[in-house]
Design a protein around this nucleic acid. Sequence first.
RNA 1: GGAUGGGUGGCAGAGUGGUCGAAUGCGCACGCUUGGAAAGCGUGUGUGCCGCAAGGCACCGAGGGUUCGAAUCCCUCCCCAUCCGCCA
Length: 424
Amino acid sequence: MLDIRHIRDTPDTVKSRLALRGDGLASVVDDVLAADTERRANETRWQHLQAERKRLSKEIGALRAQKQDSSALEEESKKIGAEMESLQQASVVAETRQRDLLLSLPNLPHEEIPPGADASANPVLRTWGTPPEIKDPQDHMTIGARLGLFDPERAAKISGSGFMCYTGSGARLERVLIQFLLDLHTRDHGYTEMSPPFLVNRATMTGTGQLPKFEEDLFGISHSDLFLIPTAEVPVTNFHRDEILPEASLPLRYAAYTPCFRREAGSTGRETKGLIRMHQFDKVELVKITAPGNSAAELESLTADAERVLQLLGLPYRVIELCAGDLGFGACRTYDIEVWAPGQNGWLEVSSCSNFGDFQARRMALRYKGTDGKNHLCHTLNGSGTALARLYVALLENGQQPDGSVHLPEILHPYFGAARLGPA
RNA sequence: GGAUGGGUGGCAGAGUGGUCGAAUGCGCACGCUUGGAAAGCGUGUGUGCCGCAAGGCACCGAGGGUUCGAAUCCCUCCCCAUCCGCCA
């Protein structure tokens, strides 16, 4: 959520920054300002009347205590009450409208990020590693089927398309990757491990920005007003919703493994092959809560922590920066990490690391008490560390051998208990 | 799911219709006192909104109602505790 004061004070600046994301947002800003003006006018008038009524009520109380007639004052107070009633109704309408509009506005892109309308304008910041030379590389689905690592047909039978069931050593590899990632981030990178609920309420989804605008992307639970989380970002960031943290406790760094559930409405036919886009996938997520002055540096180290996953696994990757037009709803700056996938002959996004500034913090009233004694909004960040299904794709496709087996990166050997995946 | 008891400031805990934004205690901050400390004494100590400011207004789990006036009475909902049922 954007700061209404900022919009009020410099509406043209806000409009021009929002225009970087696309057209049509300037009129929303005007609507917000109109609702804000109306709301404040009603509120101010209401407050004056309330002060007057409080005074009258005290007089009435005093008169009654002395057994004197107070009916004239009571009449007057009643009249004031009637006007207050209509003012309040108008004020609530304006306030609701203002809030709804504010909740629908995306974050302002950071000043330093590249302009551009879509993904084609995203610059590549750096590339790591060299894609392996593989003759006639196979797709991960082919490899998985041959080695018996998962069973897409039966997964579709029990749940539908877009779900996967890992089997045997394939299931073991999935579990092992979770363990490896959590160990890395908690032991080496200083994150605190969290294991949050996978179902959350509406307020939580609103806090991180999934609601009210993107309900169609979520799986909801009938008769309960709960939603399946699309990422651990949601429960973990909201862990501190409505709190005022001591400044000395910042930054907070959390790592959490959860499954992620996404409707992926409207994405059928796009990257739907195999494990790449699923309704349910596993992910280890990194979340940070910082003071405003540190969030830029924390985004760099967060991205480095995610990159380290691929470095340790020896998987070639590149880091791109999202241009203003490609930025997610709540983010002000985002780096995507893409791993090389020989079977796709292309790059696969395995991590998206974003700084949200105070956008989420304002929605969820997440603040810290500064050394100046005042309360300030925190900054929030998160990034995948990393998505498991696509990492799995990369491991199979980069590790495939001419003999049909898959060599695993050395660092996984003690976790997995073997150096390779062979025929079942 | 059923029954009962509860949700008040950082914590504990008063308050059942008017001067209560809220006693008291603890904690915390500052000051006095002291060679230093403890004790003691004094002062202060929530959040948000409106306003250039002075200041005003709101908030006692949430929302609605009754009333001239609600922390206090009524209704609905949420949450917590305990017991029962059920269950991993």
